[in-house]
């Protein structure tokens, strides 16, 4: 346990450095992109190692305790964002917003208890990985949309106009954020379907409005609402950005709030 935690703290440190360098870069109008990418990749590699060590020790993946769920989500969100950072160089400055957002989860992870939990028999199925994996892609897509939306909102509020000038125009960021939401909708839909198949196998019902199912459905509705609102009212980028943040908040509560306040068997392991 000691070793896997030590490796994890080094990974967290790498992420924090990546974030700090990204923020300082934007503030000073510099582009330390290679350093940020290298630090994010180093953090990911170390965190993968830490998760692997724990997986090997416990014989199951990071799906049970709050610590594990936070840890695996930090990993998947960082993977999603690092991929985008690498593939879409024009929006790299958004790291100055996304990484500080990640700090919240990193802080939470550091105070979560790393003890082990019980692995229920209903988790012995490939649907666990499919369901959870799809949910992680959804959250990753929304995180990127949130980063872009924050840039739009900051600009709209007249904050850091010059420093954010290296990013594309708001209309373009808005389009990219919309595309992230579209990808998010596809993966959220797939997650719900996979979850329903799993629930049917494990509990003999595909849908029962348990707290997690209810909240996940409401999240799905918020995405459908955002996409339709953008069409119906031809929303300006800042308004669309506000809706993207609302989706993120709902999704965040669904993924990290509901499973830990409800006492139903569907504890959620995303």
């Amino acid at each position: 346990m000691e070793q896997e935690l030590q490796v994890l703290w080094v990974a967290v440190t790498a992420y924090v450095f990546a974030g700090v360098v990204a923020v300082v870069g934007v503030v000073l109008g510099k582009r330390p992109e290679r350093s940020v990418l290298a630090l994010m990749l180093a953090g990911l590699a170390l965190q993968t190692l830490s998760i692997g060590l724990r997986w090997d020790r416990l014989g199951h993946g990071p799906f049970i305790t709050m610590f594990e769920i936070l840890c695996s989500n930090v990993w998947s969100l960082m993977t999603a964002y690092t991929l985008v950072y690498w593939r879409i160089p024009r929006i790299r400055a958004s790291a100055a917003i996304v990484m500080p957002l990640m700090f919240i989860m990193l802080g939470w992870l550091m105070v979560a208890h790393p003890g082990e939990g019980h692995y229920p028999p209903t988790y012995n199925t490939p649907w666990l990985y499919i369901h959870i994996g799809l949910g992680k892609v959804f959250l990753g897509a929304v995180l990127v949309a949130v980063g872009l939306s924050c840039v739009i909102l900051l600009r709209h509020a007249g904050i850091g106009l010059q420093r954010l000038a290296q990013l594309p125009a708001s209309a373009q960021l808005d389009e990219l954020a919309f595309r992230c939401m579209a990808i998010g909708l596809i993966f959220h839909t797939l997650m719900l379907i996979a979850g329903a198949i799993w629930a049917q196998d494990a509990w003999g019902r595909y849908w029962a409005w348990d707290p997690l199912e209810t909240w996940a459905f409401i999240t799905w509705l918020t995405v459908a609402f955002t996409i339709h609102a953008r069409l119906a009212y031809r929303l300006s980028p800042p308004v669309h950005a506000g809706l993207v943040l609302a989706v993120f908040v709902t999704a965040f509560l669904t993924f990290f709030g509901v499973p830990f306040i409800s006492a139903t068997p569907h504890q959620g392991a995303v």
């Binding site: 409005w209 209810t214 459905f217 409401i218 509705l221 918020t222 339709h228 119906a232 009212y233």
Partner: peptide, 18 residues
């Protein structure tokens, strides 16, 4: 399409109520 929006909200409220 604006009705769609209103109805999506209504459905959300209905889900919460149910």
């Amino acid at each position: 399409l604006r009705l769609t929006l209103a109805l999506i909200v209504l459905l959300g409220v209905g889900v919460a109520f149910a």
